[in-house]
Write a protein that binds this DNA or RNA. Structure first.
Lengths: 154, 154
DNA sequence: CGGAAATAATCAGTGCCCTGACTATCTGGT
DNA sequence: ACCAGATAGTCAGGGCACTGATTATTTCCG
């Protein structure tokens, strides 16, 4: 009595969507490198020499999680970590040759995977998909800093 | 050079969406009970006496994960677990009084939370949001059993 | 200069999520 | 009645994600 329909709960749907993505990534992209790990590699390709905290901010991971992900990438020899001589608190991150190679390889496979993943939608629906999810996620994200409206106009 | 734009990657978006939801759930619904835990409670309100595996199937969790979630709910006294006398492999699950009370309380809060979460979208956009995500998730889900098309007509 | 506040990273603890290997029980066919 | 295969659950192991507490370093102000 009084049970609700989970398929109308965005949180439940979001979880299922991520599971579906995880599954496809695992079979079509890589069993070694995960999607968040790829996001970190990608960020460091764009901006080498970033510190850990900033990378986390770029890919949307908190300090603890980003530390784990980076430690795993370091163990696999995909990136280097050196103390910032200007600021002894920071570690500066930079991909190794192997890290860049891995990023190139996965970029191709990821594109293929995204096509399959979004295959059931028309091109127009795909834009909507991005737009709707982005708006919901951004709005909820904005709720955490009460003083800071999402887009701050100086 | 050659870095991609993560905001056009559905996987990245899906992860951000779930994080946003997690955040809102934590502040608006409960810090004790998580969204997957609520999904289990909800399933057992609708169908008391289900076994573990079936509950997992209903909420979309594999055998290992559902075992952990159920064990936590059991520890908190929200559900009971008894051997099926008909089939010694199964455990039959059933909410306690406390479990039902918790479900009722959270149902109300969850509804409020969903409104806030989907607040940035119009009613029509909300239907699209559900439809698009469901279609993508279902299709990817269907890809795992090669022989079994998504909807099997006897 | 010197100490308080801010900041980068780590650690401990909890929970979700999956795979692959294993145990116990049940079922079906000979 | 037996045994092979299927099924329910557990366990080990790896990875993601968060909070709160702690440590080291820097910065800012009096």
């Amino acid at each position: 009595m009084a049970a609700v329909d989970l398929t109308t709960h965005p949180g439940h749907l979001a979880r299922r969507l991520q599971q579906a993505h995880y599954l496809l990534w695992n079979t079509m992209v890589s069993e070694e490198i995960t999607s968040p790990q790829f996001a970190v590699l990608n960020t460091l390709v764009a901006e080498p020499g970033l510190d850990q905290r900033t990378v986390g901010e770029r890919v949307g991971l908190d300090r603890s999680t980003i530390a784990e992900v980076i430690s795993r990438l370091g163990r696999r020899g995909l990136l280097d970590k050196v103390r910032d001589p200007q600021d002894g608190r920071r570690f500066l991150l930079r991909l190794t040759e192997e890290g860049e190679r891995t990023h190139r390889k996965l970029t191709v496979r990821t594109a293929r995977m995204n096509q399959v993943f979004l295959g059931p939608l028309t091109a127009e629906e795909q834009s909507q998909f991005f737009d709707l999810i982005r708006r919901v996620a951004d709005a909820a994200e904005g709720l955490r800093n009460p003083g800071e409206p999402t887009a701050v106009r100086s």
